[in-house]
Write a protein that binds this DNA or RNA. Structure first.
Length: 185
DNA sequence: ACTCTGATGTACT
DNA sequence: GTACATCAGAGTA
């Protein structure tokens, strides 16, 4: 898995990859790309205390708090680039994830939900992927849908949202999207 | 199915 | 003071 490349290349390549966090894992079904020239990106103003991990080594986590309540998990790509993990298909540790989320609640169909399900918080900011307990492993080639990003107010039309075609584990459907096949790596 | 709104911390003007 | 890369619950239909 090559992390040191633009986020709009890493983001589709992560669709189908397996994310493992301390015994819980899931197949990535939805991502978004954020780049330094993107007004919606935390890296747009340049390095700050919050976004420091985005300018650190590739292949590490960038974790931030959103709306005072939730954590969001990104994968650092090239410097100033990051990929937001927005949804997963749960694979292992489902009982643990259910305990963290609460019975009957969706586990991982949104960035805040999956961070809670996986137990992600501030302590994971800057942590490198590549240990047995914190890993990102490539998946098979996958058909990837492309659309515009969710929950932002700037650069609304940039086609930087990516999803696994046909997946039921998406935060929202992809309306009338492009579809392209990516090799999972 | 949908729309509306409250909750809450932090970075920024 | 304002703006968030959000979610859950209540209300309407």
């Amino acid at each position: 898995m090559i992390f040191d490349r633009p986020a709009f290349e890493l983001a589709p390549a992560l669709i189908g990859a397996v994310l493992t966090v301390r015994g819980c894992s899931g197949r990535i079904t939805e991502t978004e790309a954020y780049t330094p020239d993107d007004p919606a990106s935390h890296s747009f103003p340049g390095p700050t205390k919050r976004n420091a991990a985005m300018f650190g080594p590739s292949g590490c986590a960038y974790v931030y708090r959103i709306y005072g309540l939730h954590w969001c998990l990104n994968v650092v790509a090239a410097p100033g680039h990051a990929v937001l993990i927005r949804a997963l298909e749960p694979l292992h540790g489902i009982d643990t994830m259910t305990a963290r989320r609460g019975p009957g609640k969706p586990l991982t169909k949104g960035p805040g939900m999956l961070a809670q399900a996986l137990g992600i918080d501030q302590d994971d900011n800057g942590r490198p992927f590549g240990s047995p307990t914190f890993a990102l492993t490539p998946g098979p080639p996958t058909e990837v849908l492309i659309g515009s990003r969710i929950g932002i107010s700037k650069a609304v039309d940039w086609p930087y949202r990516y999803g696994k075609k046909g997946s039921k584990f998406l935060s929202r459907p992809f309306p009338a999207s492009f579809c392209q096949k990516y090799s999972g790596g």
